[in-house]
């Protein structure tokens, strides 16, 4: 392995960016491929698939065999709002294999009793996200209903290309939210990525059912996400 490749791979991993180490099993030469790098042909297709599924493996192209070792950052969910839906979403996310954390500055909601074993921050999103920034491998679900709490992290999620941005609220609430985001200078195509009303349309009614709908929508957005630097897939895959 080229020492530079090793350094590059580790640097990308530290920065929570997806990367593939491509090794030619014939001559042992390797190269580092980032998500969105344009690789033509059959190899490019195999690379896209590997990024999407996160699965490492060998591919044969003509007489050559390559090994693709995929390093995908662990997908995580950041929930804004320590509400009833979040209490149900936490164990569902754990079962589905996603890391999850909950942020809510309202200390009456964000109590350890209500969120036993959950990574909980009883602080403003502005403060928490400073030390733990959002990224393309993060889903953001804003469920407080309160613009003072929800708006900043939603804008931040759109700016950083979170693979999913969902916001709770009726169509009317969401229309007002869109106006506020526009006033904040967020472009319309970014705003259109917000999944609202939140969750796949399964007719969910209880908080637990809404949590299931949100989880399904997050999985769908993650698996069908567009690769590359833009991180724009959400609008196509999210059912409003």
């Amino acid at each position: 392995m080229d020492p530079l490749s090793l350094k590059k791979v580790n640097e990308e991993r530290r920065n929570r960016r997806a990367v593939i180490l491509l090794t030619d099993l014939g001559d042992g030469r390797d190269r580092v491929i980032r998500e969105g790098d344009a690789i033509p042909g059959v190899l490019g297709e195999a690379i896209d698939k590997a990024f999407r599924t996160g699965k490492s493996g060998t591919v044969e192209i003509g007489d050559n065999r390559f090994f693709l070792n995929v390093h995908v950052p662990p997908a995580r969910i950041v929930v804004i709002g320590a509400v009833h839906i979040s209490q149900a979403l936490a164990p569902i996310a754990a079962i589905a294999g996603f890391d999850l954390e909950v942020i809510d500055p309202r200390t009456a909601f964000a109590t350890p009793e209500r969120f036993d074993g959950v990574n909980l921050h009883a602080d403003w999103p502005e403060d928490v996200l400073k030390t733990q920034p959002l990224d393309r491998y993060t889903a953001l679900a804003a469920v407080t209903h309160d613009p003072k709490i929800d708006d900043f992290p939603i804008a931040e999620a759109l700016r950083t290309g979170c693979f999913y941005v969902g916001a709770l609220g009726s169509r009317k609430t969401h229309a007002k939210r869109c106006e506020r985001l526009q006033a904040m200078g967020i472009p319309d195509d970014a705003i259109s990525r917000i999944a609202a009303p939140i969750g796949l349309d399964i007719g969910a009614s209880s908080p637990a059912e809404i949590a299931v709908a949100v989880m399904a929508e997050i999985i769908s957005s993650f698996r069908k996400r567009e690769l590359g630097a833009t991180g724009k897939a959400v609008a196509e895959t999210a059912t409003p």
Binding site: L6, K7, V9, N10, R13, A50, T53, G54, K55, S56, V70, H71, V72, P73, P74, A75, G97, F98
Partner: peptide, 17 residues
């Protein structure tokens, strides 16, 4: 999840570096 690296203490590529 498949292909996910652990950010924990056992990181062989970090060890190699």
């Amino acid at each position: 999840m498949n292909g996910v690296f652990s950010a924990g203490q056992f990181d062989e590529l970090a060890t190699a570096e």
